Amino acid sequence: MALYNRVNGRVLKEKMRAETQKRVTISFYKYHHITDPAVFRDQLYLGLEAMEVLGRIYVATEGINAQISVPEEKTETFRAYLYSISFLNNIRLNIAVQDDGKSFFKLKILVRKKIVADGLDDSTFDASKTGVHVNAKEFNALAEDPNTIIVDMRNHYESEVGHFKNAILPDVDTFREELQLVEDLMREQKDKNLLMYCTGGIRCEKASAWMKHQGFKNIFQLNGGIIEYARQVKQEGIENKFIGKNFVFDERLGERITDDIIALCHQCGQPCDDHVNCKNDGCHLLFIQCKACAEKYNQCCSEECQHILTLPEEAQKEIRKGVNKGRQVFKKGRSENILHKPE
């Protein structure tokens, strides 16, 4: 039995967009030693496929990291199944803040070396020895403390559209870059409180443990990340210190937390915080584009890509043959096609 979905991605996306059943977008993670990730992966695939779960899951010897979409009518069945796995029993499930049910179009479970690429190579490092987990109310109190340094543990294109007030927003492409930056930042400020946050908590889980491993003492992390924070401030009616949109790694590319639009369209410079991928299959650059520019450039990042889309499919394939697109994320100064870059 094939444990992969081999159907063409475009076909699956059209099926997802036409689907009428309600879905719930859920994310969760757990650092736990998995003896045989490949065997666990196959068992998990069979269990989730039977419930029509879609999404992207990474499995490694260090644990599991999942972002999925579950049919609403099967959420309790899914929860029971997940909790039947001993190390996932009663695990916190982060429910999407703004959800149209169109977050994923297929189920993909990959075995990786790590569930979060960190570039670390230290056998004495224990990712389970984390900093202090804080809820939304505790986060706000720490944020008001002048002895606190707030650091956004996400990449530049995530914080560009939304972040906590007064947070340090590192201009980095990867988590491994961020770890070194934060370590350097805190070296001369060891008496300060380091308060970290990310999307759902998984990066801070490892980052806080790493900082403790490096000898830092006052380490705090937002439990459940921005997703859980947004839920708590709404439910408890407390002050929301996050502004803008929360970038997410699925088809939605973002969920709105506040009405503030703090970013600009990368093509015309007008206020906009909608991330898109260039429509040209040979590019797929991730960038911010307003509706007017999407119409003007046919959902492309440049006139060059727009022109390529007018060519026959075979000609387009020939142009992109042998080209390694790599991680096509927007970076200040990386793409000459981007005219308006954040300061």
Rank of each mutant, 00 (worst) to 15 (best):
N5Y: 02
G9L: 11
K13M: 10
R17T: 08
R17D: 11
T20V: 13
T20E: 14
R23S: 07
R23I: 04
R23T: 03
T25N: 10
K30P: 08
H32F: 11
L44C: 11
E52A: 10
R56D: 11
R56S: 08
Y58P: 03
Y58G: 12
V59R: 02
E62F: 03
G63F: 02
Q67R: 07
I68L: 10
P71Y: 06
E72S: 13
E72Q: 15
I85M: 07
I91Y: 03
L93K: 08
D99T: 05
G101V: 05
G101Q: 01
K102I: 09
K102N: 11
L110H: 13
I115T: 06
I115C: 00
L120V: 05
S123C: 09
T130E: 10
G131E: 04
N135Q: 07
N140K: 03
E144M: 15
D145F: 05
M153C: 10
S159H: 13
L169P: 02
L169E: 15
D171E: 14
L179V: 05
L179Y: 05
Q180Y: 04
D184V: 06
M186Q: 01
E188D: 13
K190R: 12
Y197P: 00
Y197L: 02
G201F: 04
R203D: 04
W210S: 01
K212S: 01
G215H: 04
G215A: 02
F216I: 01
N218L: 02
F220I: 02
G224A: 00
V233W: 07
K234Q: 15
K234G: 15
E236C: 00
G237M: 04
F242H: 01
F242K: 04
I243G: 09
F249V: 07
F249I: 06
D250F: 06
T258C: 06
I261V: 15
L264R: 14
C268H: 05
C268W: 06
G269L: 12
H275L: 11
N280G: 02
N280Q: 07
D281L: 09
H284Y: 09
L286M: 11
Q289P: 01
Q289M: 10
K291C: 04
Y297P: 02
E303A: 12
E303H: 11
E304K: 13
H307Y: 14
I308P: 00
L309E: 13
L311K: 13
E313A: 08
A315H: 10
K321E: 14
G322M: 10
V323L: 12
K325Y: 02
K332M: 11
R334L: 08
